[in-house]
Amino acid sequence: MPTLHMVNKSPFEDNALQSCLGHVLKGDAVLLIEDGVYGALAGSAVAGMLGQQNGAVSLYALGPDLAARGLSEKPLLGGVDVIDYGGFVDLVTTLDRSQSWL
């Protein structure tokens, strides 16, 4: 019964990503959208938070939001899959529920 967790805040200004990661279960997916995509950058001060998930959850970042912010070519954390809006829809429809960490 996996959950899609959506995070739309930068982890540098808000604890939504941190709180989300404190409540994910094995098999869940975490999707970073809007300012949430800043959390996908490799080598940042918060990179360790997502890195600790060790494959227990699937990590995604919304490509159009990365591109809008000039991050398309920046290295992302290992294990982060970049998806488009169609991929976003697929996650919502295939997982059992979605939870927005606003």
């Binding site: 019964m1 959950t3 404190g22 409540h23 279960l25 529920r97 939870q99 927005s100 606003l102």
Partner: peptide
């Protein structure tokens, strides 16, 4: 926190 995570995973609709 662990118990709350399990409660969240039992829901059909999560409103926030």
């Amino acid at each position: 926190r662990r118990e709350l995570a399990a409660i969240m995973a039992e829901q059909d609709v999560i409103l926030s």
